[in-house]
Nucleic acid binder design. Structure first.
Lengths: 166, 166
DNA sequence: TATTGTTATACTCTATAACTATA
DNA sequence: TATAGTTATAGAGTATAACAATA
């Protein structure tokens, strides 16, 4: 389909001719706009992540929370949410869901009874271990395949620099 | 603030000590996750775009539509929306807003009365010209300043490759 | 008085079904 | 019957105000 440009209709008489339908649009300067390529690429990357992670039903945001809890056990909700750029009110439902799936627990802090100390459960640790293997073996590996490993690393460095310095 | 780590409270007796509050969390493996850096960077880039474009009140999505209409006059809503990855139903309100601001017009196609042919108005062209100057002079220029011009170009190429091939 | 977790709420984006008018 | 534009609607994601418990 879409092979031969068969045009049975006579269009010779078209006056202020409308453009050749069927032809892909020219994105022009959009191709050089960093924000445009970044948004399109980001959607693809998250979509690929979700497909790879489908067996574990973890979103990128959930995975990032589990990673952070593993590396920083005993922190409170405000600290974790802030680190990830999540607003505290929006972090509540997210934690509810992770706690309902028994990946982590909230515990009243003994030193400050206002705050909840967060920790992974054994189930959370096990799930995170499986998730990491999927991400490394199927997700990041695919990105290295597309870009080349050196470029993938360079790309992450540039993105981190933008996030830090822009 | 946050200069000297003044710790008046005696914490020597803490048994299963909670982590040193006040210390930034360790993002660990998150720093190497492409999707994570890309999301954080993308938010920063769009935020910067919005600040630069504040005098014209144009979002990245609106700017991309105007660019596409300029380069591809006479296309219909489905074609433009598809090219930008916008769903047709969601494109309606967006066009309503751009048309209300007199940046573009919908015209019934003479060859297919179902479709609307889209074109920039003179006001739309003039606004787009101003927008392009802001983007080139203040937005992309800032990104080149942060990354270096060669790296900025290389970055766009890698992002485009991901959008195409992942 | 200030902070933690929380609720309520609102606004934007995104996604799907279904209608209408044309083809 | 199929397609273009549209409406309605629902779900994420994100943002702010305010309250109870605690500091």
């Amino acid at each position: 389909m879409r092979g031969a440009p068969s045009k049975p209709k006579a269009e010779l008489m078209a006056v202020a001719a409308e453009p050749a339908a069927d032809t892909p649009l020219d994105i022009g300067e959009l191709a050089d706009l960093l924000g445009y390529s970044m948004k399109r690429a980001q959607l693809k990357v998250f979509d690929h992540f979700l497909r790879v992670m489908a067996p574990l039903h973890l979103t990128p945001a959930q995975f990032s929370v589990l990673l952070l809890l593993e590396r920083n056990p005993g922190r409170n909700q405000t600290e974790v949410a802030n680190t990830l750029g999540i607003l505290r009110p929006n972090f509540v439902a997210m934690l509810d869901s992770l706690e309902a799936r028994e990946f982590c627990v909230r515990k009243r802090s003994s030193s400050d009874r206002r705050s909840h100390v967060l920790m992974l459960t054994e189930k959370g640790k096990a799930t995170l271990a499986r998730a990491k293997k999927l991400v490394a073996g199927k997700h990041e590996a695919r990105l290295s395949e597309v870009l080349g490993e050196d470029n993938r690393v360079a790309l992450v460095q540039m993105l981190a620099k933008i996030a830090r310095e822009l």
